[in-house]
């Protein structure tokens, strides 16, 4: 492997995670539309999920289901991180659900999900 390939194989996934995390937070901070903020939040949560999943991978390993004659633990991927991230995905789903419900109500009351519009109407209500 050349230098760049080696680097990507070793550390590339961490840079991807960091990039997604920054992208999500950047989206939350800069977007004026609340729906876009929510999407940014989702991208950020995905970064944590990818990070955890990358911890469980092993080179040349198979899915963690017991195979005949394969008792070496190195031959299986770590199932714990997948189980954890299943829970984290559910949490992320719940957060997104509550966020969308809130946005529906905000849209009903304020007639918009644009931040400037909401701030303007907030003073009138």
């Amino acid at each position: 492997m050349t230098g760049i390939e080696q680097f990507l194989a070793d550390k590339g996934i961490y840079f991807l995670t960091f990039f997604l995390l920054s992208l999500g937070i950047y989206g939350i901070i800069t977007c004026k539309n609340y729906m876009k903020k929510l999407i940014g939040m989702n991208i950020m949560q995905v970064s944590a999920i990818i990070f955890f999943l990358s911890l469980g991978q092993k080179k040349g390993a198979t899915i963690p289901v017991l195979l005949e004659g394969l008792t070496n633990s190195d031959a299986y991927n770590n199932p714990l991180t997948h189980a954890l991230m299943l829970t984290a995905i559910v949490v992320s789903l719940g957060t997104t659900g509550v966020g969308l419900a809130l946005l529906t109500r905000i849209k009903e009351k304020f007639g918009s999900v644009e931040e400037e519009e909401i701030i303007r109407r907030q003073d009138k209500l």
């Binding site: 995390l21 937070i25 939350i28 903020k37 929510l38 939040m41 950020m44 949560q45 970064s47 944590a48 949490v91 957060t95 509550v98 966020g99 809130l102």
Partner: peptide, 9 residues
Amino acid sequence: LLVGTIAAT
């Protein structure tokens, strides 16, 4: 919700 989720992440 947005800030709290950043914190949780």
